[in-house]
Write a protein that binds this DNA or RNA. Structure first.
Length: 431
RNA sequence: UCCUGCGUAGCUCAAUGGCAGAGCAUGUGGCUGUUAACCACAGGGUUGGGGGUUCGAGCCCCUCCGCAGGAGCCA
């Protein structure tokens, strides 16, 4: 009977078949230890020369790292085996023994080499558990919106020249139509949809042709965006902190083993609950100036500025009401202070930086046209977007959450390229 | 795009301008409870490409290529 390693605890003493791979092998001459994985976990197969059939023992000698095998054996509890269970092997079917040495050794690899071997690196323990946490983050995100009565609206990946700005769109030929672009945000489409469904979200890939070369940037990354009709910027912030709390708590509940393998300090995650601290941009600038930063009111916050602010807290912090001049054209200016907009950026703790960008959107037709013109954007490519302000326009707000940045923070990993199965960066499109 | 740094064995890294090395991996042998197993022996090199300085270059200079980190921008 085929049994997955995660179910071994329910089959102690039974003879079962494990279908998997050999990730390491140790031998003392008269006893072999096969380190086995099957996608659900890892375990150890043991072959003692005096107990097992001669032919099986000899066959096991031939195994190399990453051989694929079907192993028959009896499940035993044994504290000497990692995980507490081991398989006393009685039969061995070899599907394939690699003809060449497996490229990824047991230690000592640089990132460049590992990224070239990404298709194999995903088999490694740490990468496996990062992807398990990513899976849970996405599952929890969808569940959160389901529970809150949101409707999933899948926004297009091919778009015309519409979005937040210019210059950073990937361009491609689109039949006789001319140029099409890969989306850098689904927000404008979600704004359209929220006028029908009220509460909407998306979750999919987005593309930025920015020549960013840091551990926080990918050219293709996954984003969850939400948009809610009649929400103001404060409703918006409450929604964000509830979402992040829900995600973190679900990862803590469902990924304890992964977080342990990743050596994540979970005490830094278990306190992530509302309310999150809220700091106005004005106060942020004051704080930075007191600490001797050169920042002036009106400047955008730099990466180092964000780290200093987030280090003040052990929860994500929401910095709100940035200067209008540093933010996108569609953000609603504060009616009492038009020099700032009703936006917020959520900065993750421990120096992980911005994970959410959010704002209330302009709902007034004339004001939106004015802002598009002030930003020197082509008015005619926003025709349908402007339409939304002609027919039953209402205040509405939304945000975008970077999936990979959230994965980085929750896993406590160093670089965003490990937070996505196959990273696309400035200088890498393979594998 | 700009700034900084790196490129030597399959991998990770050493080597005052003076004989190109180690650990891991691989191969062979040994070992009855291993935990990145261990022990012994062996094979393994156009020092990223090109040019220059020098009696002599892995090392210094020029140039090209590849990569990494950071800035800006953003999620």
């Amino acid at each position: 009977m085929w049994v997955y390693i995660e179910d071994f605890k329910n089959h102690i003493g039974e003879t079962v078949t494990l279908k998997g791979w050999v990730f390491n092998k140790r031998s003392s001459g008269k006893i072999h230890f096969l380190q086995l994985r099957d996608g659900t976990g890892t375990t150890q197969g043991i072959l003692e020369k005096v107990k097992v059939e001669e032919s099986v023992f000899e066959k096991a000698k031939e195994l190399r790292i990453e051989s694929s095998v079907e192993v028959e054996g009896v499940i035993r509890e044994d504290s000497r085996s990692k995980g507490g269970y081991e398989l006393e092997v009685t039969g061995l079917k070899i599907l394939q023994i690699p003809s060449e040495e497996y490229p990824i050794a047991k230690k000592d690899h640089g990132t460049e080499f590992l990224m070239e071997q990404r298709h194999l690196w995903l088999r490694s323990s740490k990468q496996y558990h990062i992807m398990k946490v990513r899976n849970e983050i996405i599952r929890a995100t969808r569940a959160f919106y389901d529970n809150q009565g949101f409707t999933l609206i899948d926004t297009p990946i091919f778009t015309g020249a519409i979005g937040e700005g210019a210059g950073n769109l990937f361009q491609l030929d689109y039949f006789d139509y001319g140029k099409a672009y890969l989306t850098q945000t689904g927000q404008l489409y979600l704004e359209a949809a929220c006028m029908s469904f009220g509460k909407v979200y998306n979750l999919g890939p987005t593309f930025r042709a920015e020549k960013s070369k840091t551990r926080r940037h990918l050219t293709e990354f996954w984003m969850n965006e939400a948009e809610v009709a009649y929400y103001d910027y404060q409703d918006n912030m409450r929604l964000q902190e509830e979402l992040i709390t829900y995600i973190v708590q679900n990862v803590l509940d469902h990924c304890a083993e992964s977080l342990a393998v990743l050596e994540r300090d979970t005490t830094k995650l278990s306190g992530i609950k509302p309310p999150f601290p809220r700091v106005s941009y004005d106060d942020a600038v004051k704080l930075l100036q007191e600490k001797g930063h050169a920042i002036q009111w009106g400047d955008d916050l730099g990466a180092e500025d964000e780290t200093v602010i987030s280090n003040q807290y052990d929860k994500p912090v929401m910095v709100y009401k940035y200067p209008t001049q540093v933010k996108a054209f569609y953000m609603q200016p504060d009616p009492e202070r038009p020099e700032v907009v009703l936006c917020d950026d959520m900065l993750a703790p421990e120096g992980y930086g911005e994970i959410i960008g959010a704002s209330e959107r302009i709902h007034d037709y004339a004001l939106l046209i004015k802002r598009i013109e002030e930003n020197k954007l082509p008015l005619d490519s926003y025709d349908w977007y402007l339409d939304l302000r002609k027919y039953g326009s209402v205040p509405h707000s939304g945000f975008g959450m970077g999936i990979e940045r959230t994965v980085c923070w929750i896993c406590g990993i160093h670089h965003i390229r490990e937070a996505i199965p196959f990273a696309r960066t400035l200088y890498r499109i393979q594998p």
